[in-house]
Simulated scan of single mutants.
Amino acid sequence: MTVAIVVAAGDGVRLGAGMPKALVPIAGRSMLDWALDGVLAAEVERVVVTAPPAAPGPVEALVRARRDAARITVVPGGATRQESVAIALAEVAPDHIVLVHDAARPLTPSALFDRVRAAVAVTGAGVVPALAAADTVKEVDGSAVVATLDRSRLAAVQTPQGFPAGALQAAYAAAGNGHTDDASVFAAAGGAVSVVPGEPEAFKVTTAWDLRRAEQLLEPSQAMRTGIGVDVHAVDPSRPLWLGGVEWPGEPGLAGHSDADVVCHAIADALLSAAGLGDLGARFGVDRPEEAGRAGTDFVTRTVALLADAGFRPVSVAVQVVGNRPRIGPRRAEITGLLSAAVGAPVSVAGTTTDGLGLTGRGEGVAAIATALVTGRAGVPRLP
């Protein structure tokens, strides 16, 4: 039988979240909840979770809410990790295999638990997962470099760490203070420890950067998403020209239901596309009388609000204006400043022509092509 101990009693001071680290949310669920998914998907019959000794209630409530709660026992931990593991080991029979795991490694795949368990069963000794050191490692004394270590002989050790339960219990009973992992306790008592290949996903969440990395891996929508928007309007000399949120006196305008600002329309379309929120026509189409004459910048700011409601935020936008007139260069700084403020992210604008080809080349219209980059926490939104 295999029992996993999940250490979740830490206060998380280094993470600075103001709560026990195991309860810090990642993509809508606590770190401990994610970690238990990986543990219980492996060939593990029981799990013992160590909770913060001063306040075990939240961990107990989290476990009770799980469908597999019957397989999990919660015990108050100790003041240190070493004390917590010693307490949890009392819940494990000596003839079992025990896997000790940190809740702060919430993305650890279940295959790694099975790999460690299988190696313990074969060797009858301690087993730890490890990754080869990627960086050059120096020994230092204060700010002085003392030596360069041979990284071919170094490895970054992860959890779960597996052992015959009785042997680990005896090692903990004899252990002094100051051990940072279970393998060092086991080795100090004379136990042999071997390594198996670790997993990059089994990294430990210690800092805010680690937390952000975990969020991006657990919540795919946290990754950058791109969208493209295209808008074209024919020339209408009877109307004023609005382009990029500014008026162009003396230039022929563009025909359209709103102000026909192709730059703003393309930006709004690109943002909606990136967030999966449809398109400009579906949101602000010509079938809506209230949109008649609407300023293009208003479409942009309303689109940004729609993204915020769906959990997205713009990262950057690039726009290419296609047409013979007007020349974008003289007013580029004015346009990019105004649009960047409307989007809440950097916007770049450039202009080009089509060398006399097509509607824009003949001076019969102006087009704009926009590419937007967004990020956010939401899942794939649905159209209303």
Rank of each mutant, 00 (worst) to 15 (best):
A305I: 08
S273E: 12
V300T: 01
L271I: 04
A255S: 15
R302A: 05
F299L: 15
V263E: 13
A266T: 06
P314N: 09
L272H: 10
T301G: 01
D298N: 01
R313G: 15
V286M: 00
E290W: 10
G281K: 02
G285W: 01
G311C: 13
D287A: 11
D309M: 10
E290N: 07
R294M: 12
L307I: 09
H257L: 07
H265P: 00
L271E: 08
A308E: 15
A295P: 09
A274I: 07
G278P: 11
R313Q: 15
A305D: 15
A255Q: 14
I267Q: 10
W248Y: 14
P289H: 07
G311V: 12
S273V: 00
G311K: 08
E291I: 03
R302T: 02
D261W: 04
V286F: 00
A266N: 04
G250R: 09
E251I: 11
L307Y: 04
S258G: 13
G311S: 13
V304W: 02
C264Y: 04
L271F: 05
C264S: 14
P289R: 10
L277P: 04
P314L: 10
P249T: 08
L277N: 08
P252E: 11
V262D: 08
T303H: 11
D269R: 05
G311N: 11
D269I: 03
T297C: 11
A308L: 08
R288A: 05
A292F: 12
G253F: 02
R294L: 14
C264L: 04
P249M: 12
L307A: 07
P252K: 12
A295S: 12
A270G: 04
A255N: 10
R288H: 02
G281N: 11
A308N: 09
V304H: 00
G276R: 09
L280C: 01
G293M: 05
L254K: 14
H265T: 13
T301Y: 03
P252L: 11
D261K: 00
C264A: 14
P289T: 06
T303D: 08
F284A: 13
P252M: 12
R302F: 02
L306F: 14
G253D: 05
D261S: 04
P252A: 12
A305S: 15
V300L: 01
A295W: 06
L280G: 00
D287N: 13
C264H: 05
L306V: 12
A310Y: 03
I267W: 07
S273T: 07
E291P: 00
G250N: 12
E291T: 13
P289Q: 10
E251C: 13
I267H: 07
G285M: 08
L277E: 04
G311T: 11
G296N: 05
R313L: 15
G278M: 03
A295E: 12
F312K: 03
P249K: 07
A266F: 06
D269V: 01
G296I: 01
A268Q: 06
R288I: 11
A270I: 05
G276E: 04
W248L: 09
I267K: 07
A268C: 06
D309T: 14
G253L: 03
E251D: 10
V304S: 03
A255F: 12
D269Q: 06
D309Q: 15
L277I: 08
V304P: 02
L272P: 10
F284W: 11
E247F: 03
V262N: 05
L306C: 13
